[in-house]
Design a protein around this nucleic acid. Structure first.
Lengths: 222, 222
DNA sequence: CGGCGTCATTGATCTGCGTCAACGGCACCG
DNA sequence: CGGTGCCGTTGACGCAGATCAATGACGCCG
């Protein structure tokens, strides 16, 4: 939609506006802020979580290096951005960054682009958890991760997932047991291989997309 | 976050960029566009739907007069924006509107603001359909609608819903039967009254927010 | 105002996933 | 290199909500 490479350099110039935070794996990048916050994730990986009710935690989105992340102030639910691995982030008050960005078209373009990308992903997640079976959800998750952090390997793809089964479950509205069973089924059907806790090799992307209920194979552009 | 009244006037000036569409209830405002589209809904009400798999339709969002709506091009799923009642809309190709808006800060501000509002709502929906029981989902839906189209009536609130039970069900990831039963239960508990097919009176917003699992009563500010 | 079609409600039964429980294994640390 | 603890896997069972089915009523239009 808009070029982002040059704009990321522009964004780096704004470091003075925000706080640089270096966070260890499992640590909190943003939590309990009373105002909307924008976070530029320079390196690492993170999950945006919301506290739904009592002991239930919903993973709203996963984010990776280069992402510009909007963390809402508490309203109906409270949010936190947590590091999945050691990460570097620049944290901005949303209002300040937006008012400054008004003077810098490239910056504003980058912000709008990231907002629409997040919106599109959030909607896809709504579709997935609103109308799909456990198997479809897991397949959608794998394809989405392949699209974002997959290492191509011929017409296959290798994933090194930074998140635990619990994170996946909390993202898909399922339980860890169901995730485990579905991955087992997919392995039994020859669609994936697993190695260790975090490596998954996707053996047949087309078949996976089919059982995800996708119209077309997810494109790898932006 | 940003003033929107003046910006809506600015937006109206852009009519020449887009197509004005007057659509009857049940008609299609946008469907099968091959490019991302932005729609300014001048009057009426609409649902953004996605086709999940076979016969399953997911309502991604409800929109009302004054909303600026992003309709994505088909990717993993196909989207359509359908009128819930007679509506007037201005339909823009997203790329064109954004490039023009780069020259008009007020316009860009309005676009960013609407994008973040849609993102926040989409995330709330993910939380609701990912981690909540049927009763919580229905309570969340009622509170959300009260916030957007409710008519205050003392400390109560009256809703005239433009969408059918099927639309509500497809929005919450439930079935029409479950919606009906949950509304019946809420009526039995004295939290709501219903009159006709589309009128619901919320008798106790605080109790409803509690059973929605909300931290705080939803504020009515944009 | 009356007839008809669509939509909503209510009931009975079924099932996918959650819950509870026990086991297994990878990884980390001493 | 062996112990320990967390994380993941696997199995048994129960339940919330889906599905199937039938009735009821709202609202539209002649």
């Amino acid at each position: 939609m808009l070029p982002s490479v040059a704009a990321d350099e522009v964004l780096a110039q704004f470091e003075a506006l925000g706080r640089l935070r270096i966070v260890a794996s499992g640590g909190s990048i943003v939590a309990e802020e009373s105002e909307d916050t924008l976070v530029y994730l320079a390196s690492g990986a993170a999950k945006l979580v919301a506290f739904a009710s009592q002991d239930r935690e919903q993973v709203v989105a996963f984010h990776f290096a280069g992402d510009l992340i909007s963390v809402p102030a508490p309203r109906a639910h409270a949010y936190a951005l947590l590091a999945l691995r050691a990460s570097e982030a620049i944290v901005f008050p949303a209002g300040e960054l937006l008012s400054v960005a008004h003077e810098h078209p490239a910056m504003m373009g980058r912000i709008v682009c990231s907002a629409y990308t997040s919106l599109r992903r959030s909607r896809e997640k709504s579709i997935v958890i609103g109308r799909k079976t456990a198997r479809e959800r897991v397949a959608c998750f794998l394809i989405s991760m392949a699209d974002r952090i997959g290492l191509p390997e011929g017409n296959r793809c290798v994933l090194h997932l930074p998140m635990s089964r619990r994170d996946i479950a909390d993202s898909l509205g399922l339980t860890i047991e169901t995730i485990s069973r579905q991955l087992g089924d997919l392995r039994g059907d020859g669609l994936i291989e697993t190695a260790g806790r975090s490596t998954i090799r996707l053996l047949d992307l087309a078949a996976l997309a089919a059982c995800a209920g996708h119209l077309i194979k997810q494109s790898s552009q932006i």
